[in-house]
């Protein structure tokens, strides 16, 4: 299996793409989870669908870069709707997330079914963005993913201190004069980047797991932000590669869901067995599985 990784060109591309996705979504997802925005990624990735189809309608091609730009726009608009509805109504964020998720996805479905009646065959395969199809990743796709993902990580590194303060104490951040709204927009944009990188590999439906699970796993092993973010990226990348390899071992094992299962198992194991925070150790100590309230 490992020799395949080096010998098989397609497999190498897929594994590289999945690893890239894992790193970027793990690192950026860590901030989303710490900022209690675990489900924002879910809503935003569903919101990407109409953007993908619209980009196809406008450009008439399935060029991944064009579709990525369309997806990014739609994600951003979805996130802006979420923020402004939460600000101007008494609805709680969960309702707003569900609302935006479902209605944007509905728009995407209407457009998708409408496009599918076109006589041109080029639209075939647009629906693979629902669950992703890592096997179809080409080298240029991976290059495109790297071209948006690595600068995003660099930007995060540049604004590390500000983002860290915002993640843990937004009130303190604004009281020391940090441009909170700008930083908020920056972190949302990074989330958009992580999502559009994942669209082709795991698809809009399962993308949220790539943001939440690595961070949830990493959080159990450490109390330090730097370590947590690094671990989260490593976990994401490892799950990406293992998932991609496992799905190549047999017929009809979809890559996206395999990656999600891998990263989820990693998260559950971390929750149970991580030193100090592991539930099992607490249970052995107290004889109780969960904290009583």
């Amino acid at each position: 299996m490992l020799t395949d990784l080096f010998a098989d060109y397609t497999l190498r591309t897929v594994a590289l793409g999945s690893a890239l996705l894992g790193i970027v979504s793990g690192v950026i997802g860590a901030f989303a989870v710490l900022r209690r925005q675990s489900l924002l990624g879910d809503a935003m990735s569903h919101a990407a669908l109409p953007g993908i189809v619209l980009a196809f309608i406008v450009t008439g091609s399935r060029e991944p870069v064009a579709l990525m730009i369309g997806a990014a726009f739609a994600c951003w608009i979805g996130a802006m709707f979420v923020a402004s509805i939460v600000r101007t109504t008494r609805l709680k964020s969960d309702s707003v997330l569900g609302l935006i998720l479902a209605t944007f996805f509905g728009v995407g479905l209407v457009l998708l079914t409408w496009v599918q009646q076109w006589p041109t065959a080029a639209q075939a395969g647009l629906d693979r963005y629902l669950f992703g199809q890592a096997a179809t990743l080409l080298e240029r796709d991976v290059i495109a993913m790297a071209a948006v993902g690595l600068p995003a990580l660099l930007i995060l590194a540049l604004f590390w201190k500000e983002c860290a303060i915002l993640a843990f104490d937004p009130d303190f951040a604004s009281s020391i004069g940090l441009p909170v709204r700008l930083l908020d927009a920056l972190l949302t944009s990074l989330l958009v980047v992580a999502i559009i990188i994942g669209l082709q590999t795991v698809g809009v439906v399962l993308m949220s797991a790539m943001l939440v699970a690595p961070a949830a796993a990493a959080r159990q092993w450490t109390d330090r932000l730097g370590v947590m973010v690094a671990l989260s990226g490593i976990f994401g990348a490892a799950a990406g590669v293992v998932g991609a390899l496992l799905s190549s071992t047999a017929e009809r094992l979809p890559t996206g869901p395999m990656i999600v299962v891998c990263i989820s198992i990693l998260a559950f194991v971390s929750l149970l067995l991580a030193p100090r925070r592991g539930v099992v150790w607490a249970w052995l100590r107290n004889g109780r599985l969960v904290a009583t309230r």
Binding site: V33, R36, D42, V212, A216, L271
Partner: peptide, 10 residues
């Protein structure tokens, strides 16, 4: 160990 929204997302 994790918040409710993260639990849902996991």
């Amino acid at each position: 160990r994790i918040r409710e929204d993260a639990a849902i997302g996991l």
